[in-house]
Structures are given as structure tokens and as C-alpha cells.
């Protein structure tokens, strides 16, 4: 019968502002990594902190607030992407047999540096073409260095689902890079 008249929060507004100050950059970068759109990332940033404020009383381990905020940001980003239907995901195809490709040695340091730059661009470009759920796990694993079991916990997924998404993400990335002839030309690769 006893009802509180307003929702309780685990932190005051001023405490929450400190959290905002601490994690502002992280959340914005996460949102931008997911969308590559600064305006959309801005919306996601705001939504993430608003959601966090309403749910922070449920956060048991305050030491993991960064990971928690990142997962809210990635989930919010996926929702925004779905709502706006802005994402042009590339359909997944079967992985091409790696044995199809020949090995080419590159020895020049200069060439390696140039190559590194293009490889960087190619990888990033192809990551953007991955499904948002794949980008999400890549971000959490490779940027925030979360363990797969922790990613599963935060995203409320099974461990196997996270492993599978990471595996598929890398496979698809490799597949897309291999299929892109412009990369092959830039890097002097050849297809047998």
C-alpha cells in the first residue's frame, strides 16, 4: 500500500553531472564509432545519459559504470540506426576460401607505411559496412577491452552469441576487404 510519490535515484543531480563529465568523451566516441554521424552521435549521447540517470539505481557495480554506459550507448545507437533506417548493411555471403589467394611478400618499409595507411582506411571503411550488432561487439572488445563474458552480461546475450558475433564480424571484415578490388590495386595484391 505504501507508495513513493516520486522515483528514487541512486545519485543526486550534481553527482550525476560528475559522471557525465567523466564519461562524456567516451560515450560520444562510442556513439560516433557506431554511426559515423556527429549529429546522430550527439542525439545518442544525450539519450544515453538520460537513460543512465533513470536506471543508475539498478547498477550494482559502480566500478563498471564506464562499460555500462558504453553498452547503453551502443544499444541506443542501434535503436537510432534502426529507427532512421540509415544503415546500408552489406548482406553476408559465404566466406571465400582463403586458399584462393596467393601470398605476396612486401619488403619495402616505405611501401609498408603507405600500405599501413591504406589498410587502416580499408579496415575502417569495411567496419562501417558491418551490421551494427557486429560493430557493437568490436567496439566493446577492442576499444574497451571487455571480456566476452562481460560483453554478454552487459548486452544480455549468451556468451556463445558474443563469440559468434565477433567471429562473424572478423570473417565478414576479411571477406569484404578481400573482395574489394580497389584495395587489391592499392596494395598491389593479386587474385589468382
Amino acid at each position: 500500500m505504501l507508495k513513493k510519490r516520486s522515483k528514487k535515484h541512486a545519485v543526486s543531480e550534481s553527482e550525476f553531472q560528475l559522471i557525465y563529465e567523466m564519461f562524456y568523451n567516451r560515450v560520444y566516441r562510442d556513439a560516433y564509432f557506431m554511426t559515423k554521424d556527429p549529429y546522430l552521435a550527439q542525439d545518442i549521447l544525450q539519450d544515453t545519459f538520460i537513460k543512465a540517470y533513470s536506471q543508475i539505481h539498478n547498477l550494482k557495480d559502480k566500478d563498471k559504470i564506464g562499460a555500462w554506459l558504453s553498452t547503453i550507448a551502443t544499444r541506443t545507437a542501434i535503436d537510432h540506426i534502426r529507427k532512421q533506417n540509415i544503415w546500408n548493411g552489406i548482406p553476408k555471403g559465404d566466406l571465400l576460401e582463403e586458399e584462393k589467394y596467393i601470398v605476396k611478400e612486401i619488403s619495402s618499409t616505405v611501401e609498408e607505411n603507405v600500405e599501413s595507411h591504406f589498410v587502416q582506411e580499408a579496415v575502417i571503411e569495411k567496419i562501417l559496412e558491418l551490421k551494427s550488432e557486429y560493430r557493437e561487439v568490436i567496439l566493446l572488445k577492442y576499444i574497451h577491452e571487455l571480456k566476452e563474458k562481460d560483453i554478454a552480461k552487459w548486452l544480455n546475450l549468451k556468451d556463445g552469441t558474443v563469440k559468434s558475433r565477433l567471429h562473424r564480424a572478423k570473417k565478414e571484415l576479411r571477406n569484404q576487404i578481400e573482395k574489394d578490388t580497389s584495395n587489391q590495386q592499392l596494395l598491389g595484391g593479386e587474385i589468382s
Partner: peptide
């Protein structure tokens, strides 16, 4: 792109 490069990337 070579297999080896791809693998390293």
C-alpha cells in the same frame, strides 16, 4: 591483398 597481409590486418 595477399592472404598473409589479410591475416595480419
Amino acid at each position: 591483398m595477399t592472404y598473409q597481409q589479410n591475416k595480419e590486418i
